[in-house]
Simulated assay, not measured.
Amino acid sequence: MKNVKKLYQHFDYPLFITYIILALFGLLMVYSSSMIQGLNKFDDSTYYFSKQLKHVIIAIPVFLIMAAIPHRHYKEKKAMIAMVAVMLLSLGAVLIFGFGKEEVGSKSWIRTPVGNFQPSEFAKIIIILYFSSFFAKKNEKGTLEQFNKSIGPPLFILGLTAGLVMLETDVGATLIIVFVAMTVILASGLRFKSFLRMIVAMFLVLIPMIGILLLFKRQSILTGSRQGRLMAFMDPFKYPEGSGFQIINSFLAIGSGGLTGLGLGKSVQKLGYLPEPHTDMIFAVISEELGIFGTTIVLGGIGFIVFRAFSLGLKTKSPQARMLAFGLGSLFGIQTVLNIGGLTSVIPLTGVTLPFISYGGTSFILLSLALGILMNVSMFVKKEQSDKGV
């Protein structure tokens, strides 16, 4: 307890304030973007807002609790085994008991006594914790550059995790898991040649696995909806009444917002033109209603979190803290790029949510948990520099 109090003397207030601003702004935009959906489905314009408010109320204590847990504990062997076991069991449970959106063939949720849960969101964080802990221990033992000893366990866990998530046909989560793992490896301190060898080995494991999945689960993965998304990505205006409908209306929403927007609550595209505008398409509504002002709040806030994470990674002398900082920063950054890139047709739509802004309990709470871990890393780095008189 004494160490925790001493650590909290270095509390990162800018990071916490940014988190609160994004959470409150997200609540505001969930209310604005979901009013019509709430009225049509539940005869309650505040339905989604009320649920998201509960998520925020739960998430803030989760953030503070995770900030108080020293990140070094994730390096303990029992903790690593427990985290990976829970992750794999929950992902396996999805394949047996899971449910999702039938129209896209997705099966990524499981029901629990306290509500629905998406294990793939949990897996994103566990992969970061496991990889950073594993390579930190190799670094301490001086065996990091011993390729054969460093590659086996993490590649096996990554391949198994990515495979299970891909079986859910959650392409967006699979991409995030693979990319954050690559970021952690890059930050591990491996020489560039060793890093390239590991990345090649990673893809030699993942590509055949994806090929096998496509061979046996082609119809589940390449559903009509997903093929439509790929065609809409190539040319959405060729399918204006079909697969391109969502992208075209996203363009209209973003374009019509201009500098100042149409005004809060005055979005036209949320009136049935953007399916589920409060989830993965919420950035389009923000652009339409609040223009550059609203998008600056979102991109500035998330950008600050990513910048803070990477700067912490560059400052610390701890290999584990460095990998955690880069891994968590890449998680927020990659998820934002996939979300905004999808609705602007820079990349195909993946259904990935916008961190801290989109409606969704599992996503918001677990991203808050991840940010809490980053807060602990930040306090550790500040204490590290304070002890050195920097």
Rank of each mutant, 00 (worst) to 15 (best):
I254F: 05
D44P: 05
R191V: 00
T18E: 02
S345V: 07
V205D: 03
K315P: 01
E103K: 05
P236W: 09
G327M: 11
P70A: 10
I340W: 02
E103R: 04
I305A: 01
I128Q: 10
F293G: 03
I207L: 15
Y74W: 15
D280E: 07
F237K: 15
V306H: 05
A59R: 14
L160M: 10
I282S: 06
G228Q: 08
T295L: 12
E241S: 11
L88I: 14
I128P: 04
L274G: 02
M80G: 04
Y13A: 08
R308H: 10
A23R: 15
S90V: 06
F326W: 14
K270G: 00
L274Y: 08
L28A: 05
P113W: 11
F131L: 08
K217A: 07
S267E: 04
K266D: 01
I357Q: 08
K193L: 07
G291Y: 01
S363A: 15
M231N: 12
I176H: 07
G115Q: 11
G115R: 07
R197L: 00
A79M: 15
N249C: 01
Y359D: 04
K383W: 06
K107A: 05
P348E: 06
G224V: 05
K5A: 09
D235T: 10
K149S: 10
L252R: 14
I248D: 03
L259T: 06
F332K: 06
L64W: 01
G263A: 06
G372S: 07
L158C: 03
Y48F: 15
Q9H: 04
I248P: 00
F156H: 07
I347P: 05
I221T: 02
I21M: 10
L367I: 12
E289Y: 07
K193Y: 11
G115I: 10
Q320V: 04
Q118E: 13
S330L: 13
I21G: 03
Y273V: 06
L27G: 00
G272P: 04
T223L: 13
F25W: 12
